[in-house]
Write a protein that binds this DNA or RNA. Structure first.
Length: 101
RNA sequence: AAGGUUUUGAGGCUGGUUAAACUUCUUUUUAGAAGUUAGGAAAGUCCGAACUCCACAGAGCAUAGGGGCAGUUAACAACUGCUGGGAGAAAUCCUAAGGAAAGUGCCACAGAAAAUAGACUGCCUUUUCUUUUUUGUUAAGGUGAUGGUGAAAAGGUGGUGUAAGAGACCACCAUUGCCUCUUGUAAAAGAGGUAGAUAGGUAAACCCCCCUUGGAGCAAGACCAAAUAGAGGAAGGAUAGAGUUGCUCGCUCUCUUCCAGGGUAGGUUGCUCGAGCUUGUAAGUGAUUACAAGCCUAGAUAGAUGGCCAGCAUAACAGAAUUCGGCUUACAUCAAAACCUUUUUU
RNA sequence: GCGAGGAUGGUGGAAUCGGUAGACACGCAUGCUUGAGGGGCAUGUAGAAAUAAUUUCUGUGUGGGUUCAAGUCCCGCUCCUCGCA
């Protein structure tokens, strides 16, 4: 899976893309010209310690293995670590997936 | 049985399914199989090293750090054993623990005085004046016993002594220095003698003595590819800057010309076989060391080590980024060993 | 990876070489002034306990140490801010 790497890529999506806000996280998405999709994950230090942040990144990456974002650059920004687990994030992700595709 | 002290170990397990990274093998051109995949603190970055570069990492001073003795170690501010001091009823725990009889500084408030024991107050003798005497008062001298404040007041108690007194002298006690002997590798301990010696505290204030100390850090560094570059070569050498986190010396480079100009950024490597791990034997009180056998046990690069289901259990602190040795801090639950105190029973 | 600074009442911010901590300003409370508000003036203001005045104890992020005495000196920890590569 391709990922967003530089901070320029991230700021492009944050500034030019659209937002979809859910309870657990905020999805930023921007249509690409080439048709390939890339994923970026942003978890700030306020969410929790390194173990919790790693776990959130793994959950997000695990979901996007089955649903690869074709045609969009997507950035997932985690909001709160207490409510973030597999089931709640999957519910929010399905809402986002229905809206975009 | 209750309470306590010290030390050590574990830190989820099993099965199914679906994904990721690395290594090896197979076949073959995209797959398949097997194996491995985060800790005791990976953390904080508080010390110490390995490794790499800075001329060979150099010389002197400063700065910074350490400080009982002996040992362990690659090294250390770590560890082990012992000594002194402190806490505790004990097991045991804590201890930056050289020097204040080299020098300087500071010791608020209170107090006569805060460090050369002098002034003041007091006591005593002689003396001037007054007076029957006492008292009061002037001057000279002796004394360091009086002053009750403070964290701290210049050894303590008792006596001899004297005009008044004082280690001035004596007895006992306390402390210190020196000498001798015994024990110990040593720090030191014990015994005896001697000196009236009695010396305030603070060095985690400056300082003195002894010891150690060059700087930067894997974004170190090395290689490859692109570009009008860079590297390289020749000549010149006054000033300035950088390496160099203080100063001086020394060294190197940048510097100007032959010859011009613009600022991006990719891959490979370093990268995991190492002061390595496990077991056993031997030496040592111990830290640790020696020998033998066996083993290979994470290596990502915006960052792998995950998700779901079932069962047991309800469960902490917490996520590697060059690598090791320590220290410090966080930690649910379970387990083991040794020791101490009290009570009861035999 | 390397290394620099800081934390004091409700807020900003003082406190010399270790010697009575809460200076000063803002804010807040009460009273006076005014018909009322604003403004001005005066007093008080860290917390807790007992009280008639007043006294005692705890207090400089936190846990220890040195010292007669620590906001200050030393060590460990927590949090915040900043710099270099």
């Amino acid at each position: 899976m391709n990922t967003l790497k530089t901070s320029k890529d991230f700021s492009n999506v944050f500034d030019g893309g659209k937002k979809f806000i859910t309870a657990t996280s905020i999805f930023f998405y921007l249509k690409t010209s080439s048709g390939d999709g890339r994923l970026g994950i942003s978890v700030s230090r306020r969410v929790g310690n390194a173990v919790q942040r790693n776990k959130i990144k793994r959950i997000v990456r695990n979901i996007f293995r089955f649903f690869s974002p074709k045609g969009f650059d997507v950035v997932v920004l985690c909001r709160r670590g207490e409510v973030f687990n597999m089931s709640t994030f999957a519910r929010d992700f399905l809402k986002f997936w229905k809206k975009v595709y």
